[in-house]
């Protein structure tokens, strides 16, 4: 249960971080997913580049109609209300149910999204937002719509030479509705099923179903689901052809409950 030897670097600016990445270093933020993988030797990088000391890494910047959340923002700060507005209230509710406070004090939004565990909470919730992941690479900044950032199980749209710098979310107009439901047998463990629905006035509601053995299912127009949660959830989940009837039932309930809350 001890990591294989590795070197450690602590880049002080983003170009040094990108250079370390180009030289093959594995980035780390809170270490709350990479740490266990190192201890279990599921990851054996030669060098680790610690992103926590980069300028702006954990900065939350409210602009006129959006909020830019630095990738290094911890779950605990979000839980404690560091993100303003209704979007902040939604994120705070989600953050509080990620892992345990001692893990939330170190684990970051960006680390969680980059890691892309199929059952992770930000992986379930962020794809519902009409926002962007801001990637930084040798050619500069690239904006990736959140709905297509996670591309598979532990796979994301970042290139090997890119870092996740921030997540940009719109400030939510009055009348926005949100629903979320997840199932854990014990508080703080990764969910066995999770879903969320975000409905902004004047645009098609979006739904996400996650904790599957595949990338999260993003439903770009979930109007039918909101109109008939029970029947639509059953139809959508049936289409996934999940092998395990227990997981199938949980997925159906997650999607239905999230839709009922947002309806």
């Amino acid at each position: 249960m001890k990591p294989a030897p590795f070197d450690y670097t602590r880049p002080r600016d983003w170009s040094a971080a990108l250079a370390a990445l180009a030289a093959g270093a594995r980035p780390t933020a809170g270490g709350q997913s990479l740490g266990p993988m190192l201890n279990l030797r599921l990851a054996m990088p030669e060098t680790i580049a610690d992103l926590r000391h980069l300028p702006g890494f954990g900065v939350i910047d409210q602009q006129r109609d959006c909020v830019r959340i630095g990738a290094g923002t911890t779950h605990a700060r979000i839980e404690d209300g560091a993100v303003p507005g209704q979007v902040g209230a939604i994120l705070a509710r989600i953050a509080r149910n990620i892992a345990y406070r001692a893990v939330r004090n170190r684990g970051t939004l960006g680390g969680s999204l980059s890691h892309a565990d199929p059952a992770a909470d930000w992986v379930t919730v962020l794809p519902a937002f009409p926002g962007h992941a801001i990637a930084l690479g040798p050619e500069g900044e690239r904006r990736i719509p959140l709905g297509c950032f996670v591309t598979g199980v532990f796979a994301v749209a970042l290139q090997e030479t890119e870092l996740l710098q921030a997540v940009e979310l719109p400030m939510l107009p009055e009348g926005t509705r949100f629903g979320h439901w997840k199932f854990c047998r014990k508080p703080g463990e990764f969910s066995k099923a999770s879903a969320c629905v975000l409905a902004l006035p004047g645009s098609a509601p979006r739904a996400v179903l996650a904790a599957l053995d595949q990338r999260p299912l993003v439903i770009d127009d979930a109007a039918a689901l909101l109109a008939a949660p029970e029947a639509e959830a059953a139809r959508i989940v049936e289409g996934l052809r999940l092998a395990d009837p227990w997981r199938e039932a949980l997925a159906r309930v997650a999607l239905r409950n999230a839709a009922q809350e947002a309806a």
Binding site: A99, A102, V103
Partner: peptide, 28 residues
Amino acid sequence: EHGVCGACTVELDGAPARSCLMHAGSCD
């Protein structure tokens, strides 16, 4: 040693954290 049991919890920079998940480099 993978963050689950909490036996190793210490206060790190003013807040509880898992000491089994903080490697020497990161805690300098």
